[in-house]
């Protein structure tokens, strides 16, 4: 079963999603990368990356398409990487521009956070962004992330220097925000 929220689902990637992912990466506003990537990615590149993923029961990442439950429209992409089991993980997200401001990013992140804290039992979730992306910082703060690290003038994008920013969300902070959940992971 896919991971479900009220309005969105996070599901596995499929070959027919590749052009959508190309479009997200080739738009400088949605590529969500702290160094500008050349907007020349192709469907073939993404298909190759998709096909080269290998089966494992010991995964340290997860990659999902964000889809509208009602219309099945493709909304964006969300992932976690660098999973250190029962410890920490880093997340990332890209949303197609036509869905900006709809609250879908926050909802998709809520769905992923529930999975990471309740199913994978991580103690910290981290993300990276930069000060030139206040939308990302604002969405993360709205969810409960706190700014943890700010490396000065280390990002150059759009002709400007920005600070590289890391944010983190601790397990106890997450459960404090969702009192209906009980944290049963043994404390350290």
């Amino acid at each position: 079963m896919a991971l479900e929220g009220t309005n969105v689902i996070l599901r596995e990637q499929r070959p027919e999603d590749m052009q959508f992912l190309v479009d997200l990466r080739n738009d400088l506003e949605t590529q969500a990368w702290s160094k500008t990537l050349p907007p020349d990615y192709t469907e073939r590149m993404f298909l190759t990356q998709f096909e080269e993923r290998e089966f494992s029961y010991d995964r340290d990442d997860g990659r999902f398409l964000i889809e509208s439950k009602e219309t099945e429209e493709k909304i964006g992409y969300i992932s976690f990487t660098g999973l250190e089991p029962r410890w920490d993980v880093t997340i990332g997200i890209m949303i197609a521009k036509e869905f900006w401001g709809d609250g879908v990013a926050v909802e998709a992140l809520e769905v992923l956070l529930l999975f990471l804290f309740e199913e994978l039992g991580v103690r910290v979730v981290r993300l990276w962004t930069h000060t030139g992306n206040p939308r990302a910082v604002g969405s993360a703060e709205k969810l409960g992330f706190k700014l943890s690290y700010r490396r000065r003038e280390s990002i150059f994008k759009g002709g400007k220097l920005y600070d590289n920013v890391s944010m983190d969300f601790l397990r106890e902070e997450y459960y404090a925000l969702y009192p209906e959940l009980k944290d049963n992971l043994p404390p350290l």
């Binding site: 410890w87 910290v124 981290r126 690290y149 490396r151 000065r152 280390s154 890391s166 601790l170 350290l188």
Partner: peptide, 26 residues
Amino acid sequence: FSESGTMRRAGLRNGEFSDWIGVDIL
């Protein structure tokens, strides 16, 4: 160098969580 932030819960040492301190110099 200046301290540029604290990545919380970077490790565990002597029974307590430890943080990671970032530093940088321009």
